Computed example of a mutant assay.
Amino acid sequence: MNMNDDIRPLAGKKTIVIGGSRGIGAAIVKRLARDGAAVAFTYVSRPDRARELVATVESEGGRAIALQADSADASALDRAIAEGAAALGGLDVLVNNAGVLIFGNVDEYRLEDFDRMLSVNVRGVFVAAQAAARHLPRGGKILVIGSNTAERAMIAGSAVYGMTKAAVARLVRGMAWDFAHRGISVINVQPGPTTTDMNPLDGPHVDWVRNASPEKRIADPDEIARFVTYLARPESTYINGVSLTIDGGYSA
């Protein structure tokens, strides 16, 4: 790409996206690369999909590296971030998009599913932030993809998922204080319903979800990615320790 830094506001920046091979994560990887950042991203399975994303980024003149790591595995996650930072030559922005969604009413919810949700959605955020902090310079950023379900219980069966996202929102507030002396910002982005593998357009609740929105629609992943990429940019200063909801007024 022959673009100047005004068009590529993240030129020279090194970024890692946890859970970046599909859905919102893949959209974020593409947007970061288009803004000039070098991007490493993790995936759990489907190496073919990860290779396809790398090829897409490279075809547009960007740089992307795929790293296999399950966010439920603390050692693997820690190692992936270290490998990503080494391959990129540093780290400026961490985006933690990894998350799992297992629906079920509390009275019949399996304990192993509860533990899986906590390990990825909450512990994974903690582990990734701790690992990234070893590499982030002053002015670095940790961006977490949460959910507007942290604010509103919308449907039956979402109690555990919403609880994990509420925990993330509180963790982000605390981390903002913990990293402030190092000049590292921590921000939680809370999307509303978005078209992903977890929320397909042919899903059982899609009509209800669409009609519950003031805009009568479900977000495209790129809409979330554009917002996240703006927060990653150097000019998005004095934003710290907050949860920013992007849901088309869904939780208004």
Rank of each mutant, 00 (worst) to 15 (best):
M1V: 12
D5M: 10
I7M: 12
G12Q: 04
K13N: 08
T15M: 04
I16L: 15
G19I: 07
G20W: 02
S21F: 01
G25N: 06
G25F: 00
A26M: 04
A27H: 01
A27L: 04
I28C: 00
I28G: 03
R31P: 07
R31N: 15
L32V: 12
A33Y: 01
R34H: 07
R34T: 13
A37H: 02
A40W: 07
A40D: 15
T42C: 05
Y43K: 07
P47W: 07
R49C: 02
R51C: 11
R51G: 14
E52D: 14
E52M: 12
V54M: 03
A55N: 11
A55F: 01
T56Y: 00
V57T: 06
S59I: 07
G62D: 09
A66E: 11
A66K: 04
L67M: 15
L67K: 13
Q68Y: 01
Q68C: 11
A69L: 08
D70G: 08
S75I: 09
L77S: 10
G84W: 06
G84T: 13
A87E: 10
G89N: 05
G90R: 02
L91S: 07
D92Y: 07
L94G: 08
V95T: 09
N96R: 03
A98F: 04
V100F: 01
V100Y: 01
V100T: 10
I102P: 01
I102W: 00
G104V: 09
D107N: 15
D107C: 09
Y109T: 14
L111T: 14
E112F: 03
D113H: 09
D113V: 08
D113S: 09
F114N: 05
D115K: 09
N121G: 10
G124D: 06
V127H: 01
Q130G: 07
A131P: 08
H135M: 04
L136H: 03
P137K: 06
I142W: 00
G146D: 10
A153K: 09
M154A: 09
I155D: 07
I155E: 09
G157C: 08
A159I: 12
Y161M: 10
G162H: 05
K165M: 10
A166S: 13
L171G: 11
R173S: 10
R173K: 12
R173Y: 05
R173P: 02
R173A: 14
M175C: 08
D178V: 11
D178Q: 11
F179C: 10
F179E: 10
H181N: 11
H181R: 13
G183Q: 06
I184W: 01
S185N: 15
I187N: 02
N188E: 11
Q190N: 12
P191H: 03
G192E: 09
P193Q: 04
D197E: 12
D197L: 14
M198I: 11
N199H: 07
P200R: 06
G203M: 02
G203H: 01
P204I: 14
P204W: 04
V206K: 01
D207E: 12
W208T: 11
V209C: 00
V209T: 12
N211K: 12
P214T: 15
R217D: 14
I218Q: 02
I218C: 00
A219N: 08
P221A: 03
E223P: 08
I224L: 00
A225I: 06
R233E: 13
P234M: 05
P234I: 10
I239F: 00
G241S: 07
V242G: 02
L244V: 12
L244P: 05
L244M: 13
T245G: 00
I246Q: 03
Y250Q: 08
Y250I: 11
